[in-house]
Amino acid sequence: MPESPLGDEKVPEFTAESERSSAEPSKRLIGKILVNGSLAVQSKHFNQYLPLGKPRIIAAYLDQWGVDEILIVDRCARGADTHIDPALIASVVETCRAPLTVGGGIKKVEHALALVKAGADRVAINSGAIDHPLLMKQLANTLGEQAVVALVDVMQVAGEYRVYDYRENKILGTNVVDWCEQLQGYGVGEFVINAVNRDGEGKGYELPVYQKLRDVLKVPLIASGGYGEPKHISDVLHRGVDGVAIGNSLHYSEHSMSTIKAKLARQDIRQAGIAYESEQIGHFGRLLKLDDETLAHMLYQKREKCWL
């Protein structure tokens, strides 16, 4: 083996890591928060929405429950100069420590810079890339490829996976594999592939599309749309994805994330995870609710639930 100052011969200077099997990062569990303006919503096939509450409260809970990352997307920011509000992200960052990827109507580098300044670690682009693919190149040049995420909606038509434009509920002529390869060439650092007809169904991920994409994509690949139970995660992770995004199902049970992680750890799929502050753990090892003062500060209020 060639000599190098960073080669394996010099490792004894550092603590041995005998129990490690992989040098790659842990598979990621990403909490997805869909927003409509200032309100978090639950969605079904992206055409029915149920209000959930303030995004910052949901983000703070997901963070406490041990999420690896949070993806916040506004699918309603559609106008020429509307994009997800940086003030919303700044308010989320006050109480949420988890890494944030933010998307929704980003059409210019300046939009992305404003979001990063507000606290986003990465930006996610969907329709902005459909209208102007070279935007991805400009973003990668300014923010670095690690901060540029492509969010791609897919639908299956006659055995082929095609790009779907959520703004007009229209299936485009573009093959998803070709599209992702093109964007990868522009410096996109990660793909979140969202199977539209699986959204809100809870019946598992669209496995074949991830298999096809894994063969051509060198950058991280995240599966989205269809989560219902932990088994669905192991199924799609076996297709080689680097993480999964979970939306709706996280919102209705406390500690949802911790439960999923524990189940995956038992199957040796990922390490149980990251240490959170012990102040958040109460008697019987139960995670604590945010204190009333924090909730009051966030203007927490219960909302009546009804389909919009």
Partner: peptide, 19 residues
């Protein structure tokens, strides 16, 4: 340079650190 391995780049997510 070290040994012709191929890793997923960008390196994103949670990883262990040895000091």
């Amino acid at each position: 340079d070290v040994n012709q391995g191929e890793r997923r780049i960008p390196h994103i997510g949670w990883n262990r650190v040895s000091w």
